[in-house]
Design a binder for these strands. Sequence first.
DNA 1: CGTCAAGGTGTACCACAAGTACACCCCGGG
DNA 2: CCCGGGGTGTACTTGTGGTACACCTTGACG
Lengths: 215, 215
Amino acid sequence: MVTTSEYKTLQELFGAPEPPKNGRERLVHAAIEFIYVHGFQALGVDQILARTGVSKTTFYKHFESRDDLLIAAIQTRDQWEMTSFNAAVQKLAKDDPRAQLLAIFDVLDFWFNSPDYHGCQFINAASEFPNPHDPVHVVAADRKRKSRDEFRNLAVAAGIVEPETFADQYTALVEGTLVMRQIHGRNDAAKIIKSAVETLLVQRLPPPSESVAQR
Amino acid sequence: MVTTSEYKTLQELFGAPEPPKNGRERLVHAAIEFIYVHGFQALGVDQILARTGVSKTTFYKHFESRDDLLIAAIQTRDQWEMTSFNAAVQKLAKDDPRAQLLAIFDVLDFWFNSPDYHGCQFINAASEFPNPHDPVHVVAADRKRKSRDEFRNLAVAAGIVEPETFADQYTALVEGTLVMRQIHGRNDAAKIIKSAVETLLVQRLPPPSESVAQR
DNA sequence: CGTCAAGGTGTACCACAAGTACACCCCGGG
DNA sequence: CCCGGGGTGTACTTGTGGTACACCTTGACG
């Protein structure tokens, strides 16, 4: 098992999103930053204009409406976060699927203890836009289902029995870990839940193949 | 284990909140209903006034502001939901703590498959008001932490080893189940995750006492 | 009976944010 | 040269949270 101590900051694991350039990208970038801290509904058009120095006319040339900006923001965030997170897991656990299923919680632990953690953007988004047909909700729900499918693929690759059921239970633990960190305020959540994952893993790993030396 | 088939509807398990009477209660009641479906930010003062037939002047005699109504709404919902849920668990599992830890997922399953399920109000609230000092967020976070403590108490009563760790893992599974139902759209979540709870339980139940040790 | 307070109504109004209309600027490439 | 893409500024409309003020109804009680 790769020890995570060689990585000190989340930046090293995640990298930073590209700095903004033209008007539209400046707006989306500023929106992402603001929304992640204060939520979607708190974002005011005038506020984001003052913050970026873009004029209102320019804004409405790039976006049909305020909602249009919100959609662009979560889509961009989705792209960035998915690639960053997967890259971080890859750094810690290479291509070993079983190690990756555990390393995911190490990455979560890093993330949880970074100073600018403000919860899972997609849980927030789906809660703020409860209508399942709202475009923002759709992006968030798709992201969640894709994550669950990636977990299933890892489970299959790791040779876990009943990978679908395992994927559901593993996903629930991940989501629950996010909620415990964000709402319960437990920033040790990832460390503690990781042991539950190990319990589920050993129960589902059929042959005692000593191939993956764990510990 | 109590089979749940004797209960057909969530109403039987939960009961209904008391019908509204005077102006203030009508407003709070209508707000709760609306918020649970559409979210906090979607609630407009004029809308709720039209819906209840209360005048704006009356509204502002009862509440300092719109936010004040939101706070009253989530507090009232908190009271009602906690007592209803606990009563439902009691109906299914009497006073057997181990059975209660499993029955909680049976109640969740009922709830998930009722037509008017719209997610966990408190996850929604904390997401819509991400500022940890916001009054609405505080109510939601307190509710979550209290639930976790109730789970810990059940674990202690059930004689589970390391009840604190178990409570954290159990809580994560509950929260994860809620998220999977609400965002992933998996209304079979409670059934599937229940088996993970059983796995954690058998691992933590120390003596193979053939009958559940009851008080 | 008279009166007074609690709780309710209606209308007009202010402040602020989303979104529109219109006139204008600058600059690089056919 | 001039034309279109991208940018600016100002003034406006509209909707909604919140206020001010004048008024109505009911029931307890001296």
